[in-house]
Design a binder for these strands. Structure first.
Length: 597
RNA sequence: GGAGCCGUAGUUCAGUUUGGUUAGAACGCCUGACUGUCACUCAGGAGGUCGCGAGUUCGAGUCUCGUCGGUUCCGCCA
């Protein structure tokens, strides 16, 4: 079973090696058989080197005829200059004149061709993941991921952070996402949960005096998947003592500056932009705005302008506490034409968000305004709108009427859609932005109770502490938290907060989200207990590692930066999991399976 | 839980609108030719449970219903 070991890899030989006898190991990437001359592209992680086989060398030639794509071989020979040079690859000036050829392993006919411009469906690529990962593009993603691991570890170490592993088997805390559960064999009927995040542990490490904690860790959430959401994902988890939000921002900005410089050689400007939650919701209709989108398209409130409107739809909307707002699209300098069909399409689009519909006001070439509702609008109203939007010839204003939240949501989505439809996004731009001052609580209309917007350990802003004692919904909803998200190009890539470290505040928050003292004690008693014995002021943040890598790689889906991802139904096609287990295993755990009706 | 799209040769797709002869193409595979290719070229060949199951029909890849899988989005994701 011996084989001739490589002396070099497939990406490193060049003209300076001419004359050397070398051995290469790798996969047959492509064969070009010219009859009297036989070429093999040999591939490994490092690159591709061309092997040349001359029919005069009968043994070698006969062996080569048995080769198929993706066979693993060992080839030995002299490095020679090519007669015709390939400028597309680093090794393109040389080739190996093969004297010895060993087939280390044959390959069956492949389920799909391993080629850079992959044509196989994602389903096949997932099933034969090892073949997909042989593609340069996929290998590259894993290598970038690897480089970022290193940068992160190095960066935090330089800043005095300690990496601590936290348990994978932990206590279930049903607030927030659904837990993945692990049954206990020793304690029938009891379960561990996989961490949604190591939140409680990292806070306790602060109580323990570790001062600065970091971990690149796996988190698990049993919720439905998306292109940017996997059931298990990786997080850069950070917690710090004796700090304020500003310290965390500064340290995080330094990290991203370093990653972007080292990976992309891009200088991002710090400090990042900041908006409060209320600002972005009103301006962009979302808490994760894509600031690459220029062309105005920011939301402006028109409710006041129309407060005395004679137009029935506006009038009745305002009377029933409704909201009117719109966004302006500049068409002229972007060479956009807004047709009737597009407007119909956008009308349908906004309706999905639960608003009545879309009206538009269009300024034509000469500056004359057109709109289906023009005759209902007064000169004064038109003037106010023109001034507010600084309307120029060719501009179109899209207006939505309805309930405030839905109007903002629909315009936010419309903004993204317009940007996508008309290519208003610069793909080489990186717009980082901090979103601060999130509400502490969110009212759940269905269950008629308050929930934590972030998690129940998030600290209210000092100036809102007194509001924790109020009873009315409005006051409670107005409480803002020292809680922040980091948004990049419309993706939430990080989220964190300053934590509550005083037991009496924690008690009040638990009470508001409907946790009785008894329940709070059962679920989080260990944490509040820990806080009794000297808890430092602390806070932290966690970054979505997979999303960051995807953006660095220019990808929309995080699947391509995860070696073995799950499908949208949370299965792994390669190893066919989840799957049934032996009756014996179930018995050991004291579990009986109820048949699905 | 809901909605959209997709499922035809080993692979990627066409064919489904308007049901009708032997289901086509490219890549891959097999055979042969070829001494400078690099997506080699050329000639020939093999290869199909049209995802699965019912139904409508004289006749279903094509229409209907169900189901399974993939994917995108909504709900969900402290």
């Amino acid at each position: 079973m011996g084989f001739k070991k490589r002396t070099h890899n497939c990406g490193e030989l060049n003209i300076s090696a001419i004359g050397k006898i070398v051995t290469l190991n790798g996969w047959v990437s492509r064969i070009r058989d010219l009859g009297g001359l036989y070429f093999i592209d040999l591939r490994d992680r490092y690159g591709i080197t061309q092997l040349k086989i001359n029919p005069d060398k009968k043994d070698v030639y006969d062996t080569s005829l048995k080769l198929r794509n993706e066979c693993v071989i060992s080839a030995t020979g002299k490095v020679i200059k090519r007669e015709s040079i390939n400028r597309n690859i680093p090794t393109g000036e040389i080739e190996i004149d093969v004297d010895e050829l060993q087939i280390l392993n044959e390959a069956d006919v492949l389920p799909f061709n391993v080629e850079e411009d992959v044509k196989a469906s994602e389903e096949l690529r997932l099933k034969y993941r090892y073949l997909d990962l042989r593609r340069r593009a996929m290998t590259k993603n894993l290598l970038i991921r690897n480089d970022v691991y290193f940068i992160v570890h190095d960066y935090y170490r330089r800043h005095n952070f300690v990496e601590v592993e936290t348990p994978i088997l932990m206590k279930s805390t049903p607030e927030g996402a659904r837990d993945y559960l692990v049954p206990s064999r020793i304690h029938h009927g009891k379960f561990y949960a996989l961490p949604q995040s190591p939140q409680t542990y990292k806070q306790i490490l602060m109580v323990a005096g570790l001062d600065r904690y970091v971990q690149i860790c796996k988190c698990f959430r049993d919720e439905d998947l998306r292109a940017d959401r996997q059931p298990e994902f990786t997080q850069i988890d950070v917690e710090m003592s004796f700090v304020t939000q500003e310290d965390i921002f500064e340290l995080s900005e330094g990290l991203f500056k370093e990653i972007w410089k080292k990976i992309l050689n891009v200088d991002i400007k710090i400090p990042f932009n900041r908006f409060t939650y209320d600002e972005v919701i009103n301006k962009y209709g979302t808490d994760k705005p894509d600031l690459r989108i220029k062309n105005d398209l920011t939301i402006k409130n028109l409710t006041d302008i129309f407060k005395n409107s004679n137009f029935n739809i506006f009038k009745s909307a305002i009377e029933s506490n409704g909201f009117i707002a719109g966004i302006k699209l500049k068409t002229k300098e972007y060479k956009i034409e807004i047709t009737r069909k597009i407007i119909d399409n956008y009308t349908e689009f906004v309706k999905k968000s639960g608003v009545g519909g879309l009206v538009y006001i269009k300024s034509d070439e000469t500056g004359k305004l057109n709109s289906p509702i023009l005759k209902y609008l007064s000169e004064e109203e038109l003037k106010l709108i023109s001034d507010l939007y600084e309307v120029q010839n060719g501009d179109v204003i899209f207006i939505v009427i309805g309930e405030k939240n839905k109007v903002l949501l629909s315009l936010g989505l419309l903004r993204n859609k317009i940007a996508e439809d008309f290519n208003l996004i610069d793909e080489n731009d990186y717009e980082f932005v901090w979103i601060t001052d999130f509400p502490l609580f969110k009212f759940n209309e269905e269950e008629m109770k308050f929930e934590g917007e972030h998690h129940p350990f998030t600290s209210p802003k000092d100036e809102h502490l007194s509001l924790l004692d109020s009873q009315d919904r409005k006051s409670l909803e107005s409480i803002r938290a020292v809680c922040y998200d980091l948004v990049l190009n419309g993706n939430e890539i990080g989220s964190g907060s300053m934590r509550i470290y005083k037991p009496e505040i924690q008690r009040k928050v638990f009470k508001i989200i409907g946790l009785s003292e008894d329940e709070a004690e059962k679920k989080f008693g260990f944490l509040t207990e820990a806080f009794k014995y000297g808890a430092p002021p602390h806070g932290g943040i966690a970054f979505g590692f997979d999303r960051i890598i995807a953006i660095l790689c220019g990808l929309k889906s995080i699947k391509d930066v995860i070696a073995f991802p799950k499908t949208v139904s949370a299965t792994s096609l390669m190893d066919d999991c989840p799957n049934y287990v032996d009756e014996r295993q179930l018995k050991e755990l004291g579990i009986k399976i109820e048949k699905k009706k």
